[in-house]
Nucleic acid binder design. Structure first.
Lengths: 196, 196
DNA sequence: TGGCCTCCATACGGTGCCGTACGGTCCTCA
DNA sequence: TGAGGACCGTACGGCACCGTATGGAGGCCA
């Protein structure tokens, strides 16, 4: 676990480890001396590469932002928009993506360093999903609504998977659950009898 | 803001303030000396009512758990299950419930003090929603699936409202969005044309 | 080989918080 | 009115972490 290092460290090494810690212990876990210990180094190394602790936090956040961007572009290799959505949903619903970083950041969404990054990532994702819905044939307003609904479902799924994974085990094993999610999002509304 | 206090403090006063701080700064924000300052007191008072910091955290969590229980029983005054669900969804979707406590806890779901509380609350809520779906007429498996989906949408909605509220402003102002959410959940699936 | 520059360890002072010790105040009740 | 207990302030030691100062090891090049 980083104890047996013999080479020198780069700023990227610190940023990468900080991102790992962010996923494990949240934003507050990014502390210089503990991470130095994980890397088998001391603060002396850190303060040569970075000005202060804040710089490390920002580096980890920047790293995460570009990871999320990579995931989006990787999803683009599926040309058919409907298939792309199904694939996206499947990856989310059945994926073992216990994305700790996501959780850690959502918990500190009000932090002045986190907020802008989280805003950009959220905007980017929503726009991507909305565009995909639009490519299927929904008009702009409907596409945006469905994108928002889909994204909230995604966020909640990640959360639930991290707080009570066993509550999720049964539905995730059932193919009907996946169809329930997809059907509600991908098909046009037909107005059903309801009051008011 | 608690500065001009002249009466004595009770353990409940400390727990209540700790719960507020939990919503503002997250779990790590629950610190004895800062909260003492907010209450216009000192640690001397705190350590009379509590054994240590952990006890304060647990008290705040217990308080939150019973608040959530109160919300559930309040929802029970609506007898018709379908109406009850619509009302529940409406409160979530349109409600200005920027529930900071919820966010703060989800961000520390792995904490040994938080985990069991969060598990119980999640279980309780899922069971309640599933029972309501069952009362509408869904069989147990379907009811549970819809409850899980609805709850993930709720969690995600809360998250999104706290990270990028303006992305949510348009849909929430549109009554069609609410119908989209409800329709996908409350109506039986009809299998639609999709591949595979 | 010797000087320079890069990278890092060690040592130090400073800060915010925890928990304890102890003394003081006010309220209660006989 | 005085004794005892409930409640709280102050002072202290300890810990974890931040950031700085300084010197030393090792590569690069004349």
């Amino acid at each position: 676990m980083g104890v047996g290092r013999d080479t020198r460290l780069s700023a990227d090494d610190w940023a990468a480890e900080a991102l790992v810690v962010l996923g494990e212990k949240g934003l507050g876990g990014i502390a210089v001396e503990p991470i130095a210990a994980r890397l088998g180094a001391t603060k002396g190394s850190f303060y040569w590469h970075f000005a202060n602790r804040d710089a490390l936090v920002e580096a980890a956040l920047a790293r995460w932002e570009q990871v999320t961007e990579g995931i989006i572009t990787a999803m683009d290799e599926e040309p058919d928009p409907q298939q792309r959505l199904r694939r996206l949903f499947r990856q989310v619903v059945t994926g073992a993506t216990s994305n700790g970083v996501e959780i850690g950041l959502l918990g500190n969404a009000d932090d002045p360093r986190v907020a802008p990054v989280l805003r950009r990532v959220t905007q980017r994702r929503l726009r991507y999903v909305a565009d995909t819905f639009a490519a299927i044939g929904f008009d702009e307003r409907a596409a945006r609504q469905r994108a928002v609904l889909a994204y909230t479902a995604y966020l909640g799924h990640v959360q639930l998977a991290s707080t009570a994974p066993d509550e999720l085990a049964d539905p995730m094993a059932d193919p009907d659950y996946f169809e329930l999610v997809v059907n509600g999002l991908i098909h046009p509304v037909r107005h059903a009898p309801h009051d008011r």
